[in-house]
């Protein structure tokens, strides 16, 4: 993918005060709205599905070398909590270090995947995770190359609806859609 300038997603990224948590609560609300859209748009564009707090300082939206600004840890915590409360991230561990980034909700993902399977007549067929995620056949599918953690989370959603059964065979993960 061509290098996308983050400031093309949102001009806010070039705006120095964007990186300071605003004291006025109305302004802060607008600021967090803009941050949430920026993070989700970026992740959608780059197909980023997970986020690790330990790597936060390397996450491109969180710094802008051009204006020499970056988010501090406190701001990142506030932003992640905001994203969580909106259902845009889900923590994967108790310590809140790793999370799934849901620029599409698990329900939407489930629908997308199930529609693709049905459209390709693969209901009732057993598929491995690997061939679905990285195989040639799914190259044009939206879920191609998405993070396995996210994929598993979405399959859980499909299992809940009775549309898929996940199993493990000799360490290889597979799924059968019904």
């Amino acid at each position: 993918m061509a290098a996308t300038k983050i400031s093309d997603i949102s001009w806010h990224h070039d705006f120095p005060p964007f990186f300071t948590l605003q004291p006025n609560l109305d302004t802060r609300r607008k600021q967090l709205d803009a941050w949430c859209s920026l993070v989700l748009d970026y992740c959608r564009l780059k197909k980023v599905c997970t986020f690790d707090v330990n790597d936060a300082s390397k996450f491109p939206p969180f710094f802008n070398a051009k204006i020499n600004r970056q988010l501090d840890n406190n701001f990142i915590q506030v932003l992640l909590e905001e994203l969580r409360s909106r259902g845009n991230i889900e923590w994967e561990d108790k310590h809140k270090r790793r999370c799934l980034v849901l620029w599409k909700s698990p329900e939407e993902w489930a629908k997308t995947i199930y529609q693709w399977i049905t459209a390709h007549g693969m209901n009732g067929t057993v598929c491995t995770f690997y061939e679905l995620l990285h195989g040639d056949d799914t190259r044009s599918a939206e879920f191609h190359n998405i993070d396995p953690h996210l994929f598993r989370r979405v399959l859980m959603e499909l299992e809940k609806r009775g549309q898929a059964t996940v199993f493990s065979d000799n360490g290889a993960d597979g799924v059968k859609f019904s």
Partner: peptide, 25 residues
Amino acid sequence: MVKEGLVWIDNNGRYTEYYFPGLFT
């Protein structure tokens, strides 16, 4: 101006700066 949401504060520079978003755009 802060209370009215007219300016945003930038605390990460050498001095605290006050920005008008409308002028920035």
